[in-house]
């Protein structure tokens, strides 16, 4: 028998270190724009966008174990909903967020309800198709601006202050990333979060112990969709112009890459993976035309030597 105090100490110390590292990283992120030029801030903003998207996809892939190859579709649903409502109908940006969330939920149910009964590989193909369908619809509708996209999206205002510069959006994405991490952490440690892990590790045992697997999967899928849609709203506001080419299969793959690269299922790993996905193309800019080759070799090396990701879940 180990007495309570020893267990408490053993679990407390790493937790203290973990929180110190997280706080230091946060402090670094807060002051970063004061020390670097606009280009670096721009790249860092992209990194934060990927943090939000990867955390969202991690709920689907990492928690519930569903392979989703069309996640960018929900990102697109958010961006287009917000973009159309502000540019065409003069909506206030902040009001478009709940509408986009609702739209993502509906899209999640439409695609998820019939397909989440399928086992993983079939689901992957259906989501792949869904991603392409959304992109092609956006290309062909008038309201989405067709292939050339949607322009003239309003910049958001907050308490009379208009978000204009790269720095402003950097902080907006930082707040969104923190909020997403908080939401993920809260849910991960709750009843529904555990249910996702039960379903991921043994679907039949989960059903046998009283978990509605289809409902659990659908909720993971919808929650992932909602997070992507909120990221999409802010992305549209930052870019002021969006086109279907921002939401390709490649985009879905990059987000998935971030989740797998860092170590799916665990928030610090996913954040690390997301940052790497955003930084890699910039760091490798010097490699010129060899860039795709160098990227591929680097990724293969990581997957060979750290198959569970760079910062894996201790459970696996």
């Amino acid at each position: 028998m180990v007495d309570g105090a020893t267990i408490l100490q053993a679990t407390k110390r790493p937790r203290l270190i973990r929180w110190s590292v997280a706080l230091a990283a946060l402090a670094g992120a807060v002051v970063l724009p004061q020390f670097v030029n606009a280009y670096v801030t721009e790249v860092a903003t992209t990194a934060l966008l990927y943090v939000v998207l990867c955390l969202g996809l991690n709920i689907v892939v990492g928690y519930a174990g569903l392979l989703d190859l069309g996640y960018a579709a929900f990102f697109a649903v958010g961006a287009y909903t917000s973009g159309i409502l502000t540019a065409e109908f003069g909506f206030n940006f902040w009001l478009t967020i709940p509408v986009a969330m609702a739209a993502a939920c509906v899209a999640g149910i439409i695609i998820g309800a019939p397909t989440l009964r399928l086992r993983s590989d079939y689901l992957a193909i259906v989501t792949l198709g869904f991603g392409e369908i959304v992109r092609i619809i956006a290309r062909n509708l008038d309201i989405t601006g067709g292939a050339s996209g949607l322009v003239g999206i309003e910049r958001p205002e907050i308490f009379g202050f208009k978000l204009m510069q790269v720095q402003h959006f950097y902080y907006a994405f930082l707040v969104l990333a923190l909020l997403t991490a908080f939401v993920c952490l809260s849910v991960e440690r709750s009843r529904m979060g555990r249910a996702w892990f039960y379903v991921r590790y043994d679907e039949d045992a989960a059903a046998g112990i009283g978990i509605n697997r289809v409902s659990a999967k659908l909720q993971a899928y919808m929650m992932g969709a909602v997070i992507a849609s909120v990221a999409g709203c802010l992305y549209a506001a930052k870019m002021t112009a969006i086109s279907p080419e921002s939401f390709t299969f490649n985009q879905s793959l990059l987000i998935l890459l971030g989740v797998v690269l860092g170590g799916m299922g665990r928030i610090p790993g996913v954040v690390l993976g997301a940052i790497l996905v955003a930084l890699l193309p910039e760091v490798l800019r010097g490699a010129g035309t060899y860039r795709p080759l160098v990227t591929a070799v680097a990724l293969l090396a990581i997957m060979l030597f750290r198959p569970n990701g760079l910062w894996p879940d201790k459970r696996v």
């Binding site: 440690r189 709750s190 529904m192 249910a195 039960y198 112990i209 009283g210």
Partner: peptide, 14 residues
């Protein structure tokens, strides 16, 4: 996991 079907709180309340 056994208590899952005896409890009700979901994502939002978490």
């Amino acid at each position: 996991s056994g208590q899952h079907c005896r409890s009700r709180h979901g994502i939002v309340s978490a």
